[in-house]
Nucleic acid binder design. Structure first.
Length: 103
DNA sequence: GAACTGACTGTAA
DNA sequence: ATTACAGCCAGTT
């Protein structure tokens, strides 16, 4: 088993509804500073049965990383709004970003 | 082990 | 605001 991946999955699973985080922050909170791409990898390879809130993970600054207009992009925006998170032009207000310290 | 790849990021033009 | 590009680093060829 890969400890790093599980740490990342664990962090993502704890992101509360109505809030979001970023690849970089998730990695940092998982004890892997500077490894945003590892978060991306973990997300991409997450088992479906885990039901992770993957849509609450955004790029730096709160923007959806999927190409604008892509199916993934629309799906993520849809889920976020379903969470009550406002999405404007592929981005989310900074206030919605989870506080790393409180976590 | 070299070369690529990518659901990333920060800087610079 | 948008685009390019160089760092980044684990995983895959």
């Amino acid at each position: 088993m890969n400890l790093a991946l599980e740490a990342i999955w664990n962090v993502i699973a704890r992101i509360p509804r109505g809030q979001v985080s970023t690849y970089g922050d998730v990695a940092r909170m998982a004890g892997l500073p500077g490894r945003a791409r590892q978060t991306a990898y973990a997300l991409r390879n997450a088992p479906e049965n885990m039901h992770l809130p993957w849509h609450r993970v955004l790029g730096a600054g709160g923007k959806i990383v999927f190409p604008k207009g892509s199916a993934h992009h629309r799906e993520q925006a849809r889920r976020l709004r379903s969470d009550g998170v406002p999405v404007k032009d592929g981005k989310v207000p900074p206030a919605r970003l989870m506080d790393v310290d409180k976590f």
